[in-house]
Design a binder for these strands. Sequence first.
DNA 1: CCGTCTCTGTACGCTATCGCACATAGGACT
DNA 2: AGTCCTATGTGCGATAGCGTACAGAGACGG
Lengths: 239, 239
Amino acid sequence: MLEPHDFKQNALLNLLPRDDLAHLLPHLEKVTLTLGQSLSESGRQMSHVYFPLDSIVSLLCVMENGASTEIAIVGYEGIVGVSLFMGGETTPSRAIVQSAGHAYRLKGQLLKNEFYRAGAMQRLLLRYTQALLTQMAQTAVCNRHHSVDQQLCRWLLLSLDRLPGNELVMTQELIANMLGVRREGVTESAGKLQKAGLISYNRGRIKVIDRPGLEARVCECYSVVKREYDRLLNHHNVM
Amino acid sequence: MLEPHDFKQNALLNLLPRDDLAHLLPHLEKVTLTLGQSLSESGRQMSHVYFPLDSIVSLLCVMENGASTEIAIVGYEGIVGVSLFMGGETTPSRAIVQSAGHAYRLKGQLLKNEFYRAGAMQRLLLRYTQALLTQMAQTAVCNRHHSVDQQLCRWLLLSLDRLPGNELVMTQELIANMLGVRREGVTESAGKLQKAGLISYNRGRIKVIDRPGLEARVCECYSVVKREYDRLLNHHNVM
DNA sequence: CCGTCTCTGTACGCTATCGCACATAGGACT
DNA sequence: AGTCCTATGTGCGATAGCGTACAGAGACGG
């Protein structure tokens, strides 16, 4: 269900019944997201929510000293701006574009209106939020118990699942920021993967050559998250 | 707002308007929770949700090899069983009683009915869930960037905020399970706190002597979480 | 073609935490 | 009192990741 086959659509919108989607369609605005762009700052209210298409957005927790960690990845399967309909309006985390591309944008108020109609959209968004909860929880465990090697594999696979090709545009420096480790640590781990013939790395472009190989090295956290997304956001279960 | 003053009530129920509460009151059943009791197993549907009163419940992520990490603490300010109304019915995490005490219990279906009336209860539960999201996110960062010393302080303070007294019944072994570190690591950190005169430790009973001292040592994660709970679950903001 | 900048690779000592082993001590039960 | 169990303290060597420094190498503009 969540196989990355159709990047013309956002999975959430795709799961929405026609009638419900009809309310929103006229207000969906396609926008281009550039690498590093911020969609949401800590404690600031968002004017819009975003439904990524071929772009990836990272939710980051940034600390006072500037150190950061990614707490979740959002791609075509999700929405950026959960706090709007959850009622808090803001979050302490940031949303940064991690892979440039496109997204549908929707005025926050319009989303809230649709959400509070308590129909299919609400049910869908809540299920998605639960998937997000799982991703965050698993990130917390992974940060505690797994090596940088494993986490890098997890990160590559989670990102890859949200991209159309097998190439990723991302420097090691940025990956290090996401994982909350040193850049050198990423260099080393990526070097191992490259020597093993799983990826090929070149100045900010990562090509994944042997995906099954990555899957063999990744910790269980990847599959736990993936399985939960599949379960929660699946045609048969959702409606 | 979230000061631990009234442990006869659960803060969520307390925030609910009289009329809404009236629907539930006849079905709330006061139960005793014992240390180590499991309220929810990975992937299993819960029959009830729980509103802790003077008890504390930990949400744990357990891995295949048995290692675990606490991803959130739930006390009188919250509810155990978020996945029921979020639509997923189950979660991959476990809910374990970390401090014995009491809770109100409510049949899952009744909670869902109330939730889907899309009234005050729904708004409240969603705000609470957002607070939970923040707690998980902050746990993830904390696991990545902070020392065991700091995490122990955070854990003590978060637990203390949910308890009536200044004493905590908990062995170092169990704390280690929560934090996902070695027992010896906790022994060492707790030893430092004891030498500094902040706590006194005795075979599974921790007395907090100098709370401001703990607050001086804790990492920012504690206050980020606390502030967000206060903001989201506050009489003025909620309704 | 040259200088500059960004990205990647490598090396080295340092520290926190781990894994393990074992010692001590308080409580509970006989 | 003696025994056992559980909780805590301590002392290792091993190791993963950190901080720092620096070197090479591709890209890019003048």
